[in-house]
Design a protein around this nucleic acid. Structure first.
Length: 430
RNA sequence: UCCUCAGUAGCUCAAUGGCAGAGCAUCCGGCUGUUAACCGGAGGGUUGCUGGUUCGAGUCCAGCCUGAGGAGCCA
């Protein structure tokens, strides 16, 4: 009977066949220990000479790492085994040999591994991360779907910049114009929200920033909800609910993966809404108290975010940034016109920004003025301005970076391990 | 674009300006409970590239290439 390793407990005492790959092998004269993986997990298959005979035993002498094979045998509970079960082998069928597999059980450098990312993802650690990624994405979808949000995806090819063209990838294909790869679904999302009320888009995003840091990718995935008839407080509550829900879901369903990653889950268990909220001004005070060199009026830098996110034991919401450092579509605060009705959510443990969003400018004239101030071509935004011409309402939303979120939940050193094939400055292969 | 660091066997790394080394991987042999198994043996090198200093350069100097970390910018 075909069985998956993840379900192996169900088959105790039964004869099963596992179809997978050889992860590692240890041998002595009359016994082979074969670590087999099938994508759902790892299990040790024990092959003794007495049980399978000399010929079959000798044929297994040279099975090498990542040989694809089917292993038939009896499932046996064993306290010595990781996972609690082993398979006593009765027979092996090899499907494809594998010689000199490049990713050995020993250490490798990052560059070496990234050049072999298509093989690296077979490793226990990488499969654990990719399962957490799957769970995060699944939890995000469930969160919005269960709250009545409609998935309404936005285009990848866009005619103009969301916030200027300097960090966009140009595409030469369309007649008489240069297209760009999207850096946010934001503007289209606003149109969708005026049609469907509460919407979200979820897709790849492209940033042509010359960023070389552990929190940047040139191609990453972002989920962006947008709500009609919503103010900044509604946006913050939605963001808090999403983050808490995603963390709870991963703790509920992917504890084994977090354990493989040696992730201390204590700091994740405590995450409950509401999150602490501070204004930009309070953040500036806090940075000053902590001796962080910080120029009031500028955006928070990576180091500033690290200091702030280490100060709180859960994600922290930072609101009311200076309008000057935020995008043109951010609504300014009527109480203090130099500040924007925006929110960034910083993940704890030094991970920094995972969410950015806020309330959008819903007044036609103020929005036109902002477009001029940012020296953007108004004709490219006429359709966007229509949203203010035909039944404008207060509305808002945010974007959450999936890779940064996964990186924090798994407590990784670098976001490049959170996506199957990372795209970075100087990294396009494989 | 700028700053810092790195590049030596298939991989991870050593080597005071003086014979190019180890562990793992591979191959051969041994071992019936191993957990990155272990023990013995063998093969494996244009020290990133170009030039310079020197009796002698993996090592010092200059330039270049490739990568990593960070800055700016951002999710």
């Amino acid at each position: 009977m075909r069985a998956y390793i993840a379900d192996i407990a169900r088959y105790e005492g039964q004869q099963v066949t596992i179809r997978g790959w050889l992860h590692n092998r240890r041998s002595s004269g009359k016994i082979h220990f074969l670590i087999v993986r099938d994508g759902t997990g790892f299990i040790q298959a024990v092959m003794s000479k007495a049980a399978v005979g000399d010929e079959a035993f000798t044929r297994a002498d040279h099975l090498s790492q990542e040989t694809s094979l089917s292993v038939a045998g009896t499932v046996r509970a064993d306290a010595r085994a990781r996972g609690g079960y082993e398979i006593d082998v009765s027979g092996i069928e090899v499907h494809g040999e594998s010689h000199d597999y490049p990713v050995t059980p020993k250490e490798h450098g990052v560059d070496y591994l990234l050049d072999r990312r298509h093989l690296w993802i077979r490793s226990e650690r990488q499969t654990a991360i990719l399962r957490v990624r799957h769970e995060v994405i699944d939890a995000v979808r469930d969160f919005f779907n269960s709250r009545g949000f409609i998935l309404c995806d936005t285009p990848i090819f866009t005619p103009a910049a969301c916030e200027g063209t300097t960090t966009l990838f140009p595409v030469q294909y369309f007649e008489d114009t240069t297209a760009f790869l999207t850096q946010s679904g934001q503007l289209y999302n606003e149109a969708n929200a005026m049609a469907l009320g509460r919407v979200y888009c979820f897709g790849p995003t492209f940033r042509a920033e010359k960023s070389k840091t552990r929190r940047h990718l040139t191609e990453f995935w972002m989920v962006e909800p947008e709500m009609a008839y919503a103010d900044l407080n509604d946006v913050i509550e939605l963001a808090e609910g999403l983050v808490a829900s995603v963390v709870a879901r991963v703790l509920e369903r992917r504890r084994a993966e977090l354990q493989i990653l040696e992730r201390d889950t204590a700091t994740l268990e405590t995450i409950r809404v509401p999150f602490p909220r501070i204004t930009y001004d309070q953040a500036a005070e806090l940075l000053k108290d902590k001796g962080q060199p910080f120029q009031y009026g500028t955006d928070l830098g990576g180091g500033d975010e690290t200091v702030l996110s280490e100060h709180f034991d859960r994600p922290v919401c930072i609101t009311h940034y200076p309008a000057a450092v935020k995008a043109f579509y951010m609504k300014t605060d009527p109480q203090q016109p130099d500040k924007a009705l925006c929110v960034d959510v910083l993940a704890p443990e030094g991970y920094g920004e995972i969410i950015g969003g806020g309330q959008r400018e819903d007044d036609l004239e103020r929005l036109q003025r902002r477009i001029q101030e940012h020296q953007l071509p108004q004709e490219a935004f006429e359709w966007y301005l229509d949203l203010r011409r035909y039944g404008t309402v207060p509305h808002g939303g945010f974007g959450m970076g999936i890779e940064r979120c996964v990186s924090w939940i798994c407590k990784l050193e670098h976001v490049r391990e959170t996506i199957p094939y990372p795209r970075m400055l100087y990294r396009l292969y494989p």
